[in-house]
Design a protein around this nucleic acid. Structure first.
Lengths: 215, 215
DNA sequence: TCCCGATGTTGACAGCGTACACATTCCGAG
DNA sequence: CTCGGAATGTGTACGCTGTCAACATCGGGA
């Protein structure tokens, strides 16, 4: 009576493989990840994976999609934790919350974050595919900015560049915090978020923001 | 009579290995890179590399250092192309030029850029090691911001967060442009640079910037 | 001159991704 | 109920990889 699309012999391999792959990558690093290792841990033969993924790279892509879904969920949870009803400056707090959640996710699951965003080939379709039914993180950001427009905090035309700018800055902070550059031991996030919000809101509203939250 | 530190049997292997590795990575992707492949192309046995690099990862780190040096050079060249004498708003143009050069490098050599910044382990020392005598890119940015302070365009305290913010935004743009996220087919850079400069200069000087350059 | 250390080579091993052929299990048509 | 094909998992094999140990070669200082 259960209807998951693949629960035949093993009972939802594919999902098991993806989850185990996420675990290996996050706990022992991307270098420790191999098809054979994951299959071994799941308890199937190495080639079983080929019934569900064309090759190793396809499995990695599935891992990336999984990571995207997790990130998206955390951003939405962060929003909900801030506002039950959202309007006015609450919308600004939401935007800030998503940024914080984004960086927190990168720091909490650095290897997964790298796999999620460090890949060249992503589905060329308009939106990324996420593992859960989650909307992809970009849509969450769009929601935040739409709310700002609806609450008349920013003008529609100012919204135009906002998505790119906000995403870009927060993603850059996360990337650099993960260790590549000389900013590895990093300065606090909040001042950066202040500048992001200033940039999004525009020069007029500079001090309309709430004082930076603690931490 | 020549004194390069290692020009014995082969004549500066190590450098040859690094350069060939850069070539392979940039032309055929990181996946096509292997110790054996690089050694093969250079014309030495696979194990010759082990006289110069502890393991594959060490060679990759050398590639990353090489990439850092290239990036740094391009940023400095971009500055020189803008200003023979630098002061006042010229310093702002310099900052913008480094940002443009940073993104241009990432787009021109995407695989190399990924290797350069996508690594977890970097030398823990205060500054990254570059291949050429180049200062690392972070120092170049510091130079730009110092010039802004010296020219009294920004206050010293405003400079504090500026390095992180500027680097972060430009690096994020470059990373996203390389294809991970949904911003792959990307919106123009200049408006983002406008916002970066606004953020660095502070809310007072919003329209002090020059109109965005063409292209 | 000769010898030692730096450099490069050869051979070997385990682990990897993956192709091919085979075994098992599920499910619907008769 | 049976039975056959499709879906799923296994066994075996191949070439490639990173790396180790032992050996060969060279060049410069005693």
């Amino acid at each position: 009576m259960k209807k998951p699309q693949d629960a035949y012999h093993h009972g939802d391999l594919r999902s098991s493989l993806v989850e185990e792959a996420v675990r290996v990558i996050e706990r022992e690093g991307l270098d420790a990840f191999s098809l054979r290792e994951v299959a071994r841990r799941v308890g199937v033969s190495p080639n079983a994976a080929y019934r569900h993924f064309e090759d190793k790279d396809a499995l990695l892509s599935a891992v990336a999609a999984h990571g995207l879904g997790m990130l998206s969920r955390r951003m939405r949870e962060a929003i909900e934790a801030v506002s039950v009803r959202g309007a006015g400056p609450r919308a600004i707090a939401n935007l800030r919350a998503t940024g914080r959640a984004y960086v927190a996710f990168a720091l909490a699951k650095p290897e997964l974050f790298r796999v999620t965003f460090g890949r060249q080939a992503s589905p060329p379709g308009p939106d990324q595919t996420c593992t859960n039914g989650e909307p992809d993180p970009y849509r969450v950001l769009e929601g935040c900015l739409d709310a700002l427009v609806e609450a008349s905090v920013i003008s529609p035309e100012r919204r135009a560049g906002a998505e790119l700018f906000a995403w870009t800055t927060v993603h850059g902070y996360a990337s650099l915090a993960l260790g590549g550059g000389p900013l590895a031991s990093l300065e606090p996030l909040e001042p950066v978020l202040d500048l992001v919000i200033d940039g999004v809101l525009g020069p007029s509203a500079t001090s309309a923001r709430k004082p930076a939250a603690k931490r």
